[in-house]
Design a binder for these strands. Structure first.
Length: 561
RNA sequence: AGCCCCGUGGUGUAGAGGUAGCAUCAGAGACUCUGGAUCUCUUGGCGCCGGUUCAAAUCCGGCCGGGGCUACCA
């Protein structure tokens, strides 16, 4: 019986529940993630990875990592390596189940021979153009090839010689014999083997005939005894063929289930478009932090956990959809808030001199590393007469709702003192320095008389400050759907401010202890991570995402008014 | 034009004949040594028409709308 309190499940998990209930696969759940190693993994793949590995985990089943490498012209080992790194980083394990479609080339070939023997496949010598012509169109039935009814023995002989390398690329192909007038184009005698005199990243020069996707994929699933073969919507029309092949061969049959791929606003997800951005130099490589690639997101400072949470919370369905970028950022902040140590850093420094603070005095204040995690402990931050604060934290002529520093106003310097601004020193009309005083009674940040201040600012002590270069990243495109614009090429819609480089940032000394890719928060600014390009001399930081910032919104509105 | 898939707040999803829920976004407020976090509240939705039924987001029919399919790619 079905439990009364069935938690909400997506349609795929509902199918699996039903299959488990009826014992279709004896209660086994075995999935696979089958990328073609011809590019880099992106957040869209992460959805599929989380789905396949996630389902296996939930049902106490297994998930294979299988590289679908049936086209030697496009596939390379470097992609295999990067994909393995990315999937591991996301936190999934396939134990000893790392497979390649090419592992099964012998079996696939044998099955093709069997199909031919059964009179259900034939060698066609028509050219690619002719085959295309004969296929007909979506509204017009196709025509049968003149080679379609050649004797089985002849096809067998030709196929054997195709494999032996007697023929040139494109000279002939092996085709399934199905139905040239089938309303589903995929069933109009699909090609299952083609000649390709190309070296394969795994099998080298052993083969010069390679199986097509439709032939290979179902067999790979069948050989691995996959139960639920989960793929994206564009393979829906291929399912009848998937089933047909396995049925004709009389072999084990998984079921194919299709779901909608992930789309995100303000970015592009197709491998081809990403490649274009990389090759044309619009971004700096596949791991550019502006890209939705796993490697780019890793370098940007995304956590595996945030990505996994996102993938599970967006759900799975068959409707085409575009998820708001803001939702990804929400999942990111939610995770980073709980896990990131805090530091103070000033992006656009403004010098502050505390006139009543002794010249050579240095104090240390204890700062909380993570208010969300007591076990993160505390650290000491040095304080002295000359400090830097954020330029944005001071206004000579503050508008309504600006709570920060202004002439005559008192604010708190985090963990330190209440500070009052006495004067703004200007050069050529620009504020270059603030002269301020502290209230010595407020050491630690609280006034004995109980008076309150409206805001707390972060600061960095000038003599102790570390210099840093900071990359500020913003969305890659200026519009939510860069590919949906009729009149414009998506590359013309790239946000010119997607990357800003700040070179004179000042950060507290404790940041020195961080390693490449370490994630942290600069209080009041956002989440950052250490860029791998960081050296002993040059500290390079990447801004992952800003903190939610109500003041920025107010400011924006005020400017409009 | 043929075949296949899909229509629930702005966005992403739940619902399986009986009070349309959750999340995000947006707006308002409380709290705060991060204008962060947290907490409270508010706006907003079943594509359309008909049928079945005491009762339809749900079942049936028609329409409208969106997407996919004509590689020796995957």
């Amino acid at each position: 019986m079905v439990s009364l309190e069935t938690p909400s499940k997506d349609f795929i998990r509902q199918i699996i529940d039903e299959d488990n209930r009826t014992g279709k696969y004896d209660g086994r759940v075995h999935t696979r993630f089958p990328p073609e190693p011809n590019g880099f993994l992106h957040i869209g793949h992460a959805k599929s990875i989380c789905l396949n590995f996630g389902i296996a985990e939930e049902y106490g089943g297994k998930c294979n990592l299988r590289f679908d490498d049936t086209n030697p012209l496009k596939e390379e080992d470097v992609y295999v390596k990067s994909m393995i790194e990315d999937i591991k980083w996301l936190g999934f394990a396939w134990e000893d189940r790392l497979y390649f479609g090419s592992d099964y080339f012998d079996q696939m070939y044998d099955y093709a021979v069997q199909l031919t023997k059964d009179g259900k496949a034939y060698v066609d010598e028509m050219s690619a153009e002719e085959i295309r012509e004969y296929r007909g169109s979506v509204t017009r039935p196709g025509k049968e090839s003149r080679y379609r009814d050649r004797p089985v023995e002849e096809s067998l002989d030709l196929f054997e010689r195709m494999r032996a390398g007697e023929f040139a690329d494109g000279q002939m192909v092996l085709r399934a014999k199905i139905d040239m007038s089938h309303p589903n184009m995929n069933m109009r005698d699909p090609v299952i083997y083609r000649i390709l005199h190309a070296s394969h990243h795994n099998t080298g020069d052993k083969w010069c005939v390679y199986p097509m996707y439709d032939w290979a994929h179902g067999l790979e699933d069948s050989i691995e005894r996959i139960t639920h073969s989960i793929c994206t919507l564009e393979f829906e029309d291929h399912r009848p063929l998937y089933d047909w092949f396995l049925e004709q061969l009389g072999v084990y049959r998984p079921i194919q289930i299709e779901f909608a791929r992930l789309n995100l606003t303000y970015t592009v997800m197709s491998k081809r478009k990403l490649l274009e951005l990389v090759e044309d130099g619009h971004v700096n490589g596949w791991d550019d932090p502006r890209l939705p690639t796993i490697s780019g997101m890793r370098r940007r400072g995304y956590s595996p956990s945030a990505i996994r949470t996102f993938c599970s919370r967006i759900g799975v369905a068959k409707v085409h959809s575009i998820v708001d970028f803001e939702f990804l950022e929400h999942c990111l902040r939610d995770n980073l808030n709980k896990t990131s140590p805090r530091f103070m850093g000033v992006l656009n420094p403004l010098r502050v001199v505390l006139e009543n603070y002794p010249e050579d005095k240095v104090e240390e204040f204890e700062a909380i590393n993570n208010p969300e995690d007591e076990s993160a402990g505390t650290r000491n931050v040095p304080f002295s007469r000359v400090l830097y604060i954020e330029r944005d934290d001071f206004m000579e002529d503050p508008p309504k709702k600006f709570y920060r520093l202004a002439p005559g106003r008192e604010v708190r310097f985090r963990y330190a003192y209440l500070v009052t601004c006495k004067e703004a020193v200007k050069e050529n009309g620009e504020v270059v320095e603030l002269r301020c005083t502290i209230d010595p009674e407020t050491r630690g940040g609280n006034a004995p008389d109980g008076r309150k201040v409206k805001s707390t600012l972060h600061w960095v002590s000038e003599p102790h400050a570390l210099d840093a270069k900071v990359h500020l990243y913003d969305r890659l495109f200026t519009v939510p759907d860069p590919l949906g614009q009729k009149e414009a090429d998506f590359k013309d819609l790239i946000n010119p401010d997607s990357l800003k480089v700040l070179t004179s940032c000042k950060v507290e000394p404790a940041v020195r202890n961080l390693k490449a890719l370490d994630r942290f928060q600069f209080e009041r600014l956002g989440y950052f991570c250490v860029d791998p390009d960081t050296t002993e001399e040059d500290l390079v930081l990447n801004r992952t995402v800003e903190l939610r910032d109500p003041w920025a919104k107010i400011r924006k509105q005020q400017r409009k008014e």
